[in-house]
Simulated scan of single mutants.
Amino acid sequence: MKKTATLYRMVMPGHVCPWGLKARHLLRSRGYQVDDRWLETREETDAFKAEHDVRTTPQTFIDGNRIGGYDDLRRFMGLKVRDPDATTYTPVVVVFLTTAVMAAMLSLTVHGTPLTVPAAEWFIALSMMVLGMLKLQNVDGFSTMFLNYDLLAKRWVPYGKIYPFAEFGAGALMVAGVLTWLSAPVALLIGGIGAVSVFKAVYLDKRELKCACVGGDSNVPLGFLSLTENLMMIAMAVWMLVMEYGSGGAAMGM
């Protein structure tokens, strides 16, 4: 017997509800024949909400029973529903995976193989740039979250707004392999302060905080990956200083 469902969703000249489209796709992918009913005006939508005592659309009905909105439909299907307040490492993992692929492709183009020392250098430098870019999308939000744990920012508030520019700029110079005398000390400074701050907040004070590493709107927990970001900057800074001044060679792919 064919499974059937009735779906009420907003389809107006200036707006087609995306959640309604997702609900219809989910139902069809699970083998339901969908009675797709459009709410084509604001008045019609408001009347539907009042009749069924609901606040949102779309609304799905199966076997005469109201299932609810898109999230309710996912729960009914036994699927996970994203918790907007839940902490997750996904944003940082995605950044590192993306910059790793970028670095490998650069190395493949320049050196003919993806696994080289310059690839590792580019990975760290590109990670700094991308993480800086994410912070720069909302500098005020980042600096506010940063104040929860960064030791220098707590003493000198403007540092929170300087940090994203410093991280992005140092990363850009490291990608190009220029002005090492500037980029390396900057990375060493901000990475060192950051590492000490994270270590103190997480491992000494045992505080449960959100990390500002991917911007001020993230739910990334302050912890190992946050510390890793700072340790990478420290390692990159030391490596470049050694390569530039210790061995007399040029950094970043030379």
Rank of each mutant, 00 (worst) to 15 (best):
L173T: 09
G194T: 04
S183M: 06
A184I: 10
L179Q: 13
G171K: 08
V186W: 06
T180M: 14
A172I: 12
A184D: 09
M174N: 12
D205Q: 10
M174V: 11
G191S: 15
A184T: 09
L179V: 11
I193S: 07
M174K: 11
T180N: 15
L204P: 05
Y203S: 03
W181E: 11
P185E: 00
L173D: 09
V198Y: 06
S197I: 02
W181M: 12
G171V: 04
V196Y: 12
G194I: 03
S183D: 08
V202D: 02
V175Y: 08
Y203T: 01
G191C: 04
F199S: 15
S197K: 00
F199E: 07
V202H: 01
D205M: 00
P185A: 02
A176L: 15
A172T: 13
A176F: 15
G192E: 03
G177F: 10
L182C: 05
I190A: 01
G191P: 01
A170E: 07
V198A: 01
L204H: 12
L173N: 09
I193V: 15
A170N: 05
A201C: 04
G194C: 02
W181P: 03
D205K: 01
A176P: 12
I190H: 11
A187Q: 13
I193Y: 06
G177A: 11
A184M: 11
L188P: 09
A195L: 11
S183L: 05
P185L: 02
V198R: 00
W181C: 10
L204V: 15
L189R: 02
L189Q: 06
A195M: 04
G171Y: 03
W181T: 11
L179C: 14
W181L: 15
L179E: 13
I193R: 06
A184C: 10
S183R: 01
V198M: 04
I193G: 04
V196W: 13
K200W: 12
V196Q: 02
L189C: 13
V178D: 10
V198G: 00
L188M: 12
D205T: 00
V186G: 03
A195V: 08
Y203K: 03
A176Y: 12
T180S: 13
A201H: 04
A195Y: 00
D205E: 14
A184F: 11
D205P: 00
A195G: 01
I193T: 08
A187V: 08
L179I: 11
A201K: 05
S197V: 01
Y203L: 05
V202L: 02
G177K: 10
V202K: 12
V198P: 07
W181K: 10
K200R: 14
W181H: 10
M174F: 15
G192M: 02
A172G: 09
F199W: 14
Y203M: 03
G191T: 08
Y203Q: 06
D205Y: 00
G192P: 00
L179R: 08
I190V: 15
A201I: 06
V186P: 09
L179S: 13
A187Y: 07
L188V: 08
S183Q: 09
V196E: 02
V186D: 04
L188Q: 03
V198S: 01
A187E: 10
V175R: 10
A172S: 11
G192N: 02
T180Q: 14
S183H: 08
L189T: 14
M174Y: 14
V175P: 11
A187H: 07
M174C: 13
M174R: 12
A172C: 07
P185K: 06
T180I: 15
P185N: 05
S197H: 03
P185S: 03
A172M: 14
L173Y: 10
Y203W: 15
